[in-house]
Simulated scan of single mutants.
Amino acid sequence: MVVSTLIATIAFAAAFTLPGGYNQTIGIPFFREETSLIIFVIADAVSLICSSTSVLIFLSILTSRYAERDFLESLPRKLTSGIATLFLSIVTMMVAFAASFFVLYDEKLEWVPNTITCLAGIPVILYVTLHYGLFRDVYKLAYGSKYLFKHSRCVLYY
């Protein structure tokens, strides 16, 4: 939840401080025609939305009733959704980070944004390797064994 909040804060701040800045007389961004700026803006917006969604999902886990049914159905589904939206917000945050370097550097220094883009993949790969086991187990619990612990209405003796 803390990570999601930090991503939401950074994504919100980055939405108003575009790479390259604004034209002071007109008030529009300098690189508004660049494809990489459009990718930056879209990725930043998706990152903000996904991280805010992740915060709300994790908050709903904290404020749950903790009933038996919640542990069997609701909480694993919420945890799966929270982890997935957190992953999506991290991916789109890295896409926005890499796109900002493509906005700022010329064609002469093309190796700089390419190197930064490769390095931006490291946190995504690290997140996947660290949380894949948890995500697989929770997903299997939430969706794979749906009827494993359900009470049956069959009566043995009449």
Rank of each mutant, 00 (worst) to 15 (best):
I38N: 07
K78C: 01
A43T: 14
A43F: 10
M1L: 07
G82Y: 00
E73Y: 14
G82Q: 02
S51P: 11
Y158P: 01
V91D: 07
D106C: 01
V91C: 11
I57D: 13
F102V: 00
R153Y: 10
S145D: 09
A96L: 13
F149N: 15
T35M: 07
H131M: 04
G20D: 06
T115Y: 01
R69V: 15
Y147V: 07
S4W: 09
N114G: 06
T25A: 07
A98F: 00
S74L: 11
G121W: 12
S74F: 04
A142H: 04
L37C: 05
N23L: 06
V155L: 04
F101I: 03
A98C: 03
F71P: 01
V155A: 03
S89H: 06
C154F: 12
T35E: 05
S52H: 02
N114F: 04
L62F: 13
F16C: 02
L18K: 00
I90F: 02
M94P: 00
V138Y: 10
C154N: 05
L18R: 01
G82E: 00
T85M: 14
I38T: 13
L59T: 05
L156A: 14
Y147T: 15
F16R: 05
V112R: 00
N114L: 14
V2K: 05
M94F: 01
E107C: 02
L148S: 12
A43Y: 07
S60T: 10
A8M: 10
N23Q: 07
I42Y: 11
D70F: 03
S51E: 11
L59F: 12
L104Q: 06
F87Q: 00
C154S: 11
T80H: 11
D137Y: 04
F101R: 00
I39N: 03
E110K: 00
A13I: 08
F87L: 14
C118H: 10
A11W: 10
G21N: 04
S54A: 15
I28R: 03
A96Y: 08
F40M: 06
T115G: 00
A13W: 06
A96G: 09
I28F: 05
A11K: 06
K150Q: 12
I39Q: 06
V138D: 09
I26N: 04
G82F: 03
D137E: 14
P76D: 11
I57L: 15
S100E: 03
R153V: 15
I39S: 05
Y157G: 01
F87K: 00
S74W: 02
V91R: 01
A14H: 07
P19H: 05
I7Q: 07
I49W: 05
I125M: 15
F97N: 03
Y139R: 11
I26L: 13
T63P: 00
T5V: 13
D137G: 09
H131A: 02
T9I: 12
E68F: 06
I26H: 02
F149H: 14
T53W: 08
T115R: 00
T5K: 01
I38Y: 09
F71A: 12
L156H: 11
S60D: 14
L86H: 06
M93H: 04
Y157K: 11
A43S: 15
